[in-house]
């Protein structure tokens, strides 16, 4: 395929999130473990950016660093050009675990609470909560407590809560991994529909190649031990006629990048870099 000339850098919009040579190391009692080594990438507004890699590739660690829970050992993480120093409501994380909802608040209360904490009036917060609950199909459950919901419903509430806060970037750490396959499939489609409706920026961690190609617009592939970037791939827009075939070939390519032992750069990337 005729490769188009790489676009001049100056034409690209300012990145929303920019990681520069980020290295993250943990000190255990006996040694210093490198979880992430020299990873750099940029997320643009409206991206559905995927961090894809097997366990041990540091993708969750990266996400936590971006959220502000872990300071990088070296390198910088900047959101809108400002270095990330601590957690904050401009980067809301949706976790894999179902216990991220406050058990002592109702479904609506779980969304209203952080909005109120961040300065919204009670009326505005309630209205926003009800709007998002309707979008994720849980309007009827607004007055339930989290323990009365199924796992998929809890994740929907967590997503609704995250979106209600209108973060600059929505961080998701394998949010559907603990769901059964059918619920997971429905949640993935719902997430894409929400993205269509609301147009947020998504940074999504997964170890599933299929999930990456289904949800992502761009995929960063990470290799394990320590986590290093293997490359970034574009995903053809979903919904097109030939999307199934092109997705399958993309998945085969990713599979090759992740599991072929060759440390040589992938041929597709030889022209660039």
């Amino acid at each position: 395929m005729p490769a188009p000339a790489p676009a001049p850098v100056t034409l690209l919009p300012q990145p929303l999130l920019k990681l520069t040579d980020v290295t993250i190391q943990y000190a255990t009692d006996r040694q210093i473990v490198t979880a992430v080594q020299n990873v750099a990438f940029e997320v643009l507004r409206g991206d559905r950016f995927i961090l894809l890699g097997p366990s041990g590739s540091g993708k969750s660690t990266l996400l936590k660093a971006i959220a502000g829970f872990i300071p990088p050992t070296r390198g910088t993480i900047a959101l809108d050009g400002r270095a990330v120093a601590r957690p904050g409501p401009d980067r809301i994380m949706v976790f894999q675990e179902f216990d991220q909802l406050l058990p002592w608040r109702t479904v609506r209360g779980n969304i209203v609470f952080p909005l109120r904490e961040n300065g919204a009036s009670r009326a505005a917060a309630t209205e926003r909560a009800d709007d998002l609950l309707a979008r994720v199909g849980l309007a009827k459950f607004a007055d339930h407590y989290p323990h009365q919901l199924s796992g998929g419903m809890k994740q929907r509430v967590a997503i609704a809560r995250a979106l209600a806060l209108e973060p600059r970037i929505l961080l998701m750490d394998e949010p559907f991994a603990a769901l059964d396959a059918m619920t997971r499939r429905r949640m993935q489609e719902e997430l894409l529909r929400l993205w269509d409706d609301l147009g947020f920026t998504l940074l999504f961690v997964t170890h599933s190649i299929e999930e990456a190609t289904l949800l992502g617009s761009r995929i960063l592939i990470l290799s394990p031990h320590p986590g290093r970037a293997r490359g970034e791939l574009n995903v053809p827009p979903y919904g097109g006629d030939h999307s199934v075939e092109s997705r399958q070939s993309l998945e085969r390519r990713i599979h090759g990048l992740l599991f072929d032992s060759a440390d040589a750069p992938a041929p597709e990337h030889a022209a660039h870099a």
Binding site: R86, P87, P89, D99, Q100, L102, P103, P114, E117
Partner: peptide
């Protein structure tokens, strides 16, 4: 998870203790 959730909301110090730790 619950701690990180609370910090994400921007809660710190006593606010964090009373809104997250004590009920949890």
């Amino acid at each position: 998870t619950l701690r990180m959730t609370g910090h994400s909301f921007g809660l710190r110090g006593l606010r964090f203790a009373f809104a997250i730790l004590i009920p949890a």
